[in-house]
Structures are given as C-alpha cells and as structure tokens.
Amino acid sequence: MPQQVVRLGIAFAVLAIVFMAARQALVPDTFGETGHYRAAAVDSIAAYPLQYAGHDACAVCHRPIAEKKSDSNHSGVSCEVCHGPAADHAAAPGSVKPPAPRERGFCPMCHGYNASRPSGFPQIDPVAHNPTVPCMTCHDPHAPEPPVIPGACRACHGQIASQKGVSHHATLPCLTCHEAPDEHKATPRLIRPGKPDTRDFCGGCHAEAAVSPSHIPRIDMSTHGDGYLCWQCHYPHHPGTE
C-alpha cells in the first residue's frame, strides 16, 4: 500500500475516533428517547410556572360571586379576563391582590362599538354613552344586564327618550321630574305635563345634604350657579352636556 494512503488513513482514523468520542460524550442523555429531540425538554417546558390560575381556582374561595356570574350574561367570561393573571393571588390570597378595573376605559375593550365585531354583540359608543360615569354604576360586571330604561313616553317623545337613554339620567322614569296626569295621554295638547320650576327640585338629589346614592354628583346649592336655574346650564335629559 502506498505510503500516502497509510499516512492519510492514520490522520482520518484519528479524526474519526475523536469525532465518535466527542459524540458519545456530548449528546444529551435523553436525546432520542421519544423522537429526534431531548425528551427532558418536554418536562422542563411542562414545569414552567403558571400565571393564570383558571376560573375553577377562583371559584374555590369566591363561590357566591362565581355562582352569581355563572347564571349571568358573563357566565363564559373567566374571572381573570378582567382581574388579570391571578396565580400568585391563588397561592397567597392574603398578600397578593389582583386588580379590579373600575375605570370607564376597560369595558369598551369588549363593548365599545367596532364595525368588525359580530352583530348582536352588545356594544356602545363610549363617547356618547352616559359620559364619565364608571360602567359599574349602572352595570354589575358579575351579572351584567342592560339597565331598564323606562319607555312609557317613548312613543311620542322618541328623541328625548333616546337622548336620555344614554345619559346619566337613563334609568330615571319620566315621572320622577314630570307630573303627567292620565288625561295627558288622551289629549296631550290640552292637558300638559308639569315641569319642576325650582333649584331645590334638582337639589333633592344633588344638594350636599340630599339623601341619595353616593355616586350622584353633589354641589353646594348656596354658591353653585350664581342663582341661575339648573336647566339654564344643564340639560336634564342629557346632563353630561352643558
């Protein structure tokens, strides 16, 4: 055999042995056990920590809310959609508290009008819909129902009804402010409904001393508005606008 072949043979044999030895030493232990990959990788991926605990975990402690929600329009909405990832809270309920979004910007992420959303899904225009009031004031997020908007006068007063329907005063029956005798329905132009005519009428809800729910804005009747009548500045059917 030529000398060259012998010498090259030795060189290649050395390389081959080094390669085989390196291969033996370096291929990970679990490689190829279940396929062409490191079987141990599956276990290490499976061991990643959780961030979202899952709705079942919440229901363990928050049973009344979970039950209330399960019968509502939000039955399919998991707690952590709004309250954020809560695995840490589930692990240490005392020390970690998940947030509860109350600001107006949150709910329109789902319920703000968007032309691409499926028709039939409840949507509002966040600008016109009862401006500045947190959604929770009228809607219980754990059992949301569209608020009942009184519709008795809508047949004739449609424009006012639709305006009021998206205002702070949406849920107030018309008769809260107006006196409308039954005859008004039969002869609307002869028998006119009454209108409040004093500042104190509005003060019944909005005065500082008034007995009314706390979310209603209050003013100091003695200094606010310089003695003008309320409806000279505030339109009662859409009080958000001035």
Partner: peptide, 14 residues
C-alpha cells in the same frame, strides 16, 4: 504527514 516518498511510483500515485 510524514509521507516523504518521492519515488516515481509514489509521485505517479499522487
């Protein structure tokens, strides 16, 4: 690689 044979036969093989 230590292969120093320069005979005609070896060069012919190269």
């Amino acid at each position: 690689l230590g292969s120093t044979d320069l005979s005609d036969r070896a060069l012919g093989f190269d």
